[in-house]
Design a protein around this nucleic acid. Structure first.
Lengths: 151, 151
DNA sequence: CTCTATCTTAGACATAGTCCAATCTTGGAC
DNA sequence: GTCCAAGATTGGACTATGTCTAAGATAGAG
């Protein structure tokens, strides 16, 4: 892997960005990138098995191990976000250019990307008391409730 | 199970609260409650296997299934919080009486309870656009960073 | 003390993900 | 175009966490 995380490559598709990053292109990586290119960027939270299933429709012999490897590399490169909304499954979110949080329906588990109008700020006095020297780098917020269809 | 979630029983120990709730008391439930009674309430986030290991020191023949069943029932009763900080493991948090969020060290994975001075509020206009009719009921916040020891 | 609804158990099963050694492929050198 | 080494892919074994089931044990009401 030649690319470094955080180097923003502003090209339209994920496939093209991987090339710009100097990735060796294989048919496996092409179909995985394609899976994300066809669905767009917002409100997409695919599990590794979702990605494998869709990739296998284009390249039937692709293995689960490759899907896991490649998704991990894409996360390291900053092209995907690994999101976990509280179940045991990691989900891969291509919406890496706009800061957002997640809205999860506790009935049907649909996940939406949302802006948060107030960013959470940990109480610095409390943090200093509880965990002196702790440096906060990010905050993940999961809003839970019921979507219109499940009410 | 006779108790209902949300019925606050203000007794000192978890063991006593379970009795107040009308739970049939068994040696298994006593030792599981004891595990939480001895560690206190704040900054405690035990996995099911942590609980099993500690319970087994008091009652060696206790089974994993019973630990899982009992933890689930305690969560349903509102005596424990099931917390997941993004890995595949559920953790059980006895701090159910004070609203708090979690501070997680990305190196050593230590978890602290923290107050958040600004509660996150989803942008209602955005929610109305993105997910019309969605009713938000709660928000989980995970602050990530590095603790003093890991910096 | 009896009896039954409830609880506990071992172990099979499910799910999500990791790891490894063998094999194959890409893409630069020529 | 051909070569070839670094890097990518593979199947399958393995791990970790949690769920399920049917058989047996037990708390506690009466």
């Amino acid at each position: 892997m030649h690319s470094k995380p955080g180097i923003l490559v502003s090209v339209e598709t994920l496939s093209e960005r991987l090339i710009s990053r100097g990735w060796r292109m294989t048919s496996q990586r092409r179909v995985i990138a394609r899976v994300f290119d066809v669905v767009g960027a917002e409100h997409i939270h695919l599990t590794a098995d979702d990605v494998h299933e869709r990739a296998a429709r284009l390249l039937p012999e692709i293995s689960r191990a490759t899907v896991y490897n490649t998704l991990g590399e894409m996360v390291d490169a900053g092209e995907l976000l690994a999101v976990n909304v509280g179940d045991r499954v990691m989900r891969y979110d291509p919406n890496v250019y706009t800061q957002h949080h997640h809205l999860v329906c506790s009935v049907c588990n649909v996940i939406f990307d949302v802006q948060a109008s107030v960013l959470p700020v940990a109480d610095s006095v409390d943090v200093a008391m509880i965990a002196p020297g702790f440096q906060i780098e990010s905050a993940d917020v999961i809003f839970r409730g019921r979507c219109a269809a499940c009410r």
